[in-house]
């Protein structure tokens, strides 16, 4: 069985000296610089074996000038999950480490978040738009995106 989020925080902080996490609404808030360390530990520690990244998305908080990237992890081998991680990034320049070296499945989801939210994933080998076309300007899932008037001539 997977420990509760509070226990998980304590266990991770013991395993990884220098890492400080917070719990917020059932998710672990991970500092951006420590995300790779924490994720690698969650995948490779036998007890957790979180080998499956089921979801990677982002949330835009314009009033707080913040962009959160959200990770949902499951374990196929242990049949447990989900563990929810969140990384808080500055909205003006959101950059976070890519998770593709850890979970191969992150590649397309990171491209989607880059396309629609404009988050840059450091270390991604092929970071380009995936849904919108190459010449598209802007990131349409950002709250301040202005939708074109299709009736205008």
């Amino acid at each position: 069985m997977l420990p509760s989020v509070e226990e998980l925080k304590t266990v991770l902080e013991q395993l990884l000296p220098g890492v400080s996490l917070t719990v917020e609404g059932g998710s672990l808030i991970v500092p951006p610089q420590q995300l790779t360390t924490v994720c690698r530990c969650l995948k490779e520690t036998e007890r957790f074996s979180l080998d499956y990244l089921s979801n990677l998305t982002a949330v835009d908080y314009p009033s707080e000038q913040r962009m959160d990237v959200v990770y949902h992890l499951y374990s196929m081998s242990k049949k447990h999950g989900p563990v929810s991680l969140r990384v808080k990034l500055p909205r003006a320049n959101p950059i976070v480490a890519s998770m593709t070296p850890i979970w191969r499945g992150a590649e397309f989801q990171e491209r989607e978040v880059y396309d629609l939210f404009g988050v840059t994933f450091d270390g991604h080998t092929d970071l380009r738009r995936i849904l919108m076309w190459d010449g598209f300007v802007g990131h349409p899932m950002r709250k301040d995106y202005v939708i074109e008037d299709q009736d205008a001539s």
Partner: peptide, 8 residues
Amino acid sequence: ANGLEPRY
């Protein structure tokens, strides 16, 4: 840039 050209 954000839609089709022409729009219609």
